[in-house]
């Protein structure tokens, strides 16, 4: 059971419920295969640093989850197949990264409360 983190960008032309539905789809895809979602963040509409298929902005989402390793391959195929997703990046977290993610989340929650 390794810990992974995925950041993916959704097409900005999607309506809000399409965005939610896509995120739900990937989340269910993971939980069906025995993943345990540690965190899922929605960064909303952000401007891209450069145009991706001539889109200037995109909906950013972050998943952090623990899953057995072999699930990741078809998880990525799922991303590749879905055209609503413009870009995705899955990263395996080592112990420093996990500790950093906790620290970052506590800082974010503190900031949101303040």
């Amino acid at each position: 059971m390794n810990q992974y983190e995925t950041v993916f960008i959704l097409n900005p032309v999607l309506s809000d419920d399409q965005v939610k539905e896509t995120v739900k789809k990937f989340e269910n895809f993971l939980t069906e295969r025995g993943a345990e979602m540690v965190a899922s963040e929605d960064w909303g509409l952000k401007k891209l640093a450069y145009a991706i298929d001539n889109k200037k902005s995109g909906f950013y989402h972050l998943f952090q989850f623990t899953v057995p390793g072999e699930v990741i391959n078809d998880y990525e195929v799922e991303f590749r197949r879905d055209e609503r997703v413009m870009r995705y990046l899955t990263v395996r977290l080592d112990k420093y990264a996990i500790e950093w993610a906790e620290k970052r989340r506590s800082r974010m929650s503190k900031k949101s409360q303040a």
């Binding site: 950041v7 960008i9 640093a49 450069y50 950013y60 870009r87 990046l89």
Partner: peptide
């Protein structure tokens, strides 16, 4: 390089 991939940082500019 990862940051550039997810378009949070430009490749050049």
């Amino acid at each position: 390089k990862r940051c550039r991939h997810i378009a949070l940082m430009p490749f050049e500019g």
